[in-house]
Amino acid sequence: MLSYLIRRIVNAVITLLVVTMVTFGIFFAVPTITGSDPALLYIGKTADQASLDGIRTKLGLDDPIPVQYGKFIKGLVAGRDYASGNDVTHCDAPCLGYSFKTEQEVTPLLLSDIPVTLSLALGAAVLWVLIGVATGVLSALRRGSFLDRAAMTGALAGVSLPIYFTGQLALLIFIHWLGWLPDTAYTPFLENPASWFTGLILPWVTLAFLFAATYARLTRANMLETLNEDYIRTARSKGLTERTVIGKHGLRAVLTPLVTIFGLDFGTLLAGAILTEQVFNLRGLGYQALTAIRQNDLPVILGVTLLAAIFIVVINLIVDLLYSVIDPRVRLG
């Protein structure tokens, strides 16, 4: 088990290294090669040659690309100093550099955005798992009933409609027409839990609807299959109540494979925050990314990309470990 753990973590670190290399390559190396100067991006077209050179030295843009990459990694791990003559700026680890536009450190900038994105994703995830699994189980148990057909039609809509459509629709109906909810907005949880909740409930529900649909269909299909398994027959033949048979023996088998899919979806949601936050007008990582892209703010783009990769890798790691714990056949070979 321990060696498995270590192996997985080493794998994850290697994956992340590769991701940094590729993103770094794309964002910093390509402009250098094609002749569009990052220093120009940083300081603006009107700058004089002297300050431009100063910036170059300070950001290390004159170094060969591998050296730049090495410094970037060093900054991530140990922090780094940006120096041009006597002008020294220290950037603590994990250092992602400075925004070209606002000259702020990228790391704290992104860190302050994480709660927004995470709140959005976590709340939606809780909702969609609960709703999806419950609907799926009920549909499976009442197969062919009105409830089943209604739920599955709804699920089909959920799966096939894109978020910018359902999202806009929800905003229109619940906020603009009915006025039931305040505008979507992020209030830190510690500041005011109630506003945190009301500000996010609509995005949650809309996102949950999208994902719950998949979960309902999967749960239903898994449950129907599971109920035909021999071990369910064994459970019944022991005289267990239907509630135990389905709620314990059935659900355990149904949920285990869902863990993997959940990990993927959650990762996708975090990484794909751009679209969702855009729709709901929330200022999280996605918003940050979008702004950075518009403004050609390379360090921020690089930071967001890296963060997204970390999310996905870490979640996959967690899912794999979790899976090996809940499925003894994986754990014990």
């Binding site: 398994e229 071990y231 064994t234 005289g239 088998a253 809940i326 499925d327």
Partner: peptide, 18 residues
């Protein structure tokens, strides 16, 4: 499972894997 009980053909699939 009390007064009457049953054993099945394929013991692997008859046991819950988890």
């Amino acid at each position: 499972g009390g007064k009457m009980a049953m054993i099945f053909q394929d013991p692997l699939s008859a046991m819950h894997p988890y």
